[in-house]
Design a protein around this nucleic acid. Sequence first.
DNA 1: AAAATTATATATCATTATGATATATGGAGG
DNA 2: CCTCCATATATCATAATGATATATAATTTT
Lengths: 175, 175
Amino acid sequence: MASISTIESIILGCLTTRPMSGYEIKQLISLSTSLFYNASYGSIYPILRKHEEADLVCVEELIENGRFKKIYHLTEKGYSTFLAWLEEPPQPITMKNDMLVRLFFYNNLTCEKQCEIIRMYLDHLRDFRQRLEGIAAAAYSDPYKEYTLCWGKDFYVFLIEWYENLLNDLEKPSM
Amino acid sequence: MASISTIESIILGCLTTRPMSGYEIKQLISLSTSLFYNASYGSIYPILRKHEEADLVCVEELIENGRFKKIYHLTEKGYSTFLAWLEEPPQPITMKNDMLVRLFFYNNLTCEKQCEIIRMYLDHLRDFRQRLEGIAAAAYSDPYKEYTLCWGKDFYVFLIEWYENLLNDLEKPSM
DNA sequence: AAAATTATATATCATTATGATATATGGAGG
DNA sequence: CCTCCATATATCATAATGATATATAATTTT
């Protein structure tokens, strides 16, 4: 039995909380898992159709406030497929972190320029962290969702401290 | 002037150290930036051709030990394009971290199963960290490459500590 | 009250990137 | 001698992104 992908699983996972539309799934992902796993409309809509064909979800078409809407419901097969995925071994973490790529090649830049960019980057990291801190963990339905929110906050604290140390190092006059 | 992408820049960046083949570029990326930015052959070879057409690199075709080889050299235009990229503002970090996706939906699993998976995951993280620690920073030509290696090690220390704390939390009998 | 903007909602598409596979040769070890 | 691994280039189906198109409802601004 061929296993399903992470994005396919996230979509099923969203539907374990309640039936919702593709648009609502995208919204939920954006303000919950997007920091560690994102998905675009260009993935979500085709996967929902694929899930429907595989009987993992079923569709309820309705008109709400004059607006056409497709509500996706998780089937039992969809739920058991999701549970099976949950127990599969996690894949290695991959990342797109171009600030570290820049740092890797920083010997091509003057020290002033390096520090200027890192200072700007730190501002951005602190801004982002502030926005994360603003999200109330209590808004979530269970402790696991709080844990992952907490991971995001901890990760940005790690990044900020790391770049602060780097800046200290670079600003220290070398011997 | 349209800017170049991060992968396109990494390839130019590799060529700032010395001229090399597509195969060598892939090798260098695999054991240096891959942790925070990876690239596959399916990206590298087409980009090298694109760079050649844009005069960012030039090609030296040769036969070494009877084996056909294309050595790519960075042009001046290629170097200035790379320098311009270095000063551009960094993009937000994106990630594929499916362990956190699993955690996000862990209310669907028994506590024993949760702990079992996290313990296995911690083993994997510790293994990976050990392998990272084995890479000698001294092998690198400049301190910036050491910094990024150090970031990788620090990131895995962060992850290990984070999941150790999580495991403690989950194993603690709830009131 | 009209206009503009934002939110809801689905869908598609060109471009980008991955992961796998194909092809071929040299070198090392059993 | 044969197998396996490293070197080396290339392509391709599949996946995923980011942007755009389309349309309507709700809200905010002028």
